[in-house]
Amino acid sequence: MAWTHSQTPPVKGHLPVLLPLRSMPQGLPLQDRLFNVWTASILVLALAAALITPAFAQDATPGRSAFAILLEWTPTLAKGFGFNVLISILSMAIGTVLGVGLGILQVSPLRPVRQVAWVITQFFRNSPWLVLLFYCILLIPFQIEVFGTKIPFPGWVKAVIGLSLPVMAYMSEYMRGAILSIPTGQWESAESLGFSRGQTLREIILPQTIKRVLPSWMNLYAVLTMATPLVSIVGVNDVMALTRAALSAEGRVDLLIPMYLYILCWFFLYCYPISALTRWLERKYSVKL
């Protein structure tokens, strides 16, 4: 503003009390959001910690440096991390498809359909992910026979199914909220133009929900990715399981902290851009509907 409290307002009735408390932050371009001073400092700190911690411990245990060992194990750990990413993508895909369907059923005009969809949603949304994983591992047979062909269900496939269940439930809630947030006028004008309910959903309502659901959906993906190490508990060889294997193979206590810190950095580097992009999208879409 060009004038302060001590000066007379340029316009009569233009009072400081009417001004916004503080101006909205200027929207930064996406790349500046991703690579700004905060991100950089967090990364530097993480790397420094990873390097310094083993350096302190090194006097006690002779042999290769912790850094060299991390480097040596990197290809193996990368494969494990790739597995985590694969599991997260598959769970997300299955959960999204099921969740969108379930969300649509939650706003069905038929009361029983609505209620069943609601119960399913609430059940899986309020269950611990690890317990769901255990259930899937235990309940799903290791192979299913369909028309004489045996379809195997290895542990990681069961884990994908287990993780897709909470994703489905969250997605269902997001969809329900998004569909209900579309003004009723959209339904009415579609109805008066002769669109059936199904056509209205497909052609008019669902396309408009995408923008509203997208930020939550991406956030859910980041959360899901960070939850994938749970699969190591049910015997899938993900990055966590491989890290434990590497640690026991090396048998060095001083490696514990740097090794896990190293894995944390990987998850951070994968998930942080997603959450930054999410926040950027949220801001972008929050202004106009």
Binding site: G185, Q186, E188, S189, S192, L193, G194, Q208, L289
Partner: peptide
Amino acid sequence: RKKVGMVFQQYNLFP
């Protein structure tokens, strides 16, 4: 609805 068209106060165009 083929016979009757309707226009609303809030336009209700598909955005």
